[in-house]
Amino acid sequence: MITMLDLCFYMFGLTLIGSVVTVFLARNTVYSVFALIVAFFNSAGIFLLLGAEFLAFVLLIVYVGAVAILFLFVVMMIGADEPLKKKDLFKNVRGFILAAGVMVTEIIVFVTGKFTLPSATIMGDGDSQISNTHAIGEVLYTKYFLPFQLVGILLLIAMIGAIVLTLRNRTGVKRQKAKDQLQRKPSDTLELKDVPIGQGVKTK
């Protein structure tokens, strides 16, 4: 018996894995970014299945709206796409073995271990009267106030760092100098003269 939850999980999960694979194998980096956006959408679906509605929408806003678009801008700025060549794919065998080892260990732990997993449905816990967003809001500004502020400061530092890193003064570009314009006085540029009749003004 396949329930709606199962169907949604397999749909989101398989699309998520497929799009992540596409991120790494796409020939053009722009396609990688689009596949990354698809992956973010599907993981938002997974979050919804887990009952974390607030996080799902934060994920959409932050990842799709900010991070992926940032990636897209950088891809378009740099514009260099080096397609993955077949002979490079197996150059780094040690990395493959490490990743495969982690994977196999996890599967062994899951399959053979004492780690029993409840197979009951996950959607819809009965006892909560308040919504997920309400619950997060109640603890985020009270119990987790300090870490929340620290993350804010971290984001501020990251923003300042990104601006400082990428700022440059280009030479040879004509630009408006507002400070100089505002500090101009009439006495700097204007000279009043009495003009004698019949003689005119001598210019310097």
């Binding site: 199962d6 999980f9 999960g13 894995i17 990743a99 197979s119």
Partner: peptide, 20 residues
């Protein structure tokens, strides 16, 4: 039927894919 283990396996598979 999908249980919490499925979600854990999905997360682990994603982690390994990212590592690769």
């Amino acid at each position: 039927a999908v249980g919490l283990g499925h979600f854990l396996i999905l997360g682990s598979v994603l982690f390994c894919l990212g590592l690769v």
